[in-house]
């Protein structure tokens, strides 16, 4: 029972933090803030998918979580490198 309430709280907190990160993504004055907001967005998405996996008591969401974590890192590095150099692979 206590786990259910904690799960509801964690869902609310992670969803709210996704919304706040989205505000920074739209607002962010320069491109560095937008890259940072995208990175935080992917990390929060990993947390949300793991919470969905706990709520459904299944293990099949683990692969989705690890793929989003990897793609988030790679896309962060790629976008930062594109902003810095104007090219991703030189």
């Amino acid at each position: 029972m206590i786990v259910t309430y904690a799960l509801i709280f964690a869902f609310a907190a992670v969803s709210l933090s996704l919304l706040l990160t989205m505000i920074r993504l739209v607002k962010g004055p320069r491109s560095g803030d937008r890259i940072l907001a995208l990175d935080t967005l992917s990390i929060n998405a990993v947390a949300l998918i793991i919470l969905v996996g706990i709520a459904g008591a299944t293990q099949i969401y683990f692969e989705a979580a690890i793929i989003i974590a990897m793609l988030g890192f790679v896309s962060t590095v790629a976008v930062a490198r594109f902003v810095l150099r104007g090219d991703i692979i030189e």
Binding site: F9, S17, R24
Partner: peptide
């Protein structure tokens, strides 16, 4: 209780990180 505490701590710190991302001034 341990599962609930870990969930609450995780949710709180995720929220704190995003509030800081929105509210802080310098890049």
């Amino acid at each position: 209780i341990a599962i609930a505490a870990a969930l609450v701590i995780g949710g709180l710190f995720t929220l704190v990180g995003s509030i800081g991302l929105l509210k802080l001034e310098a890049p």
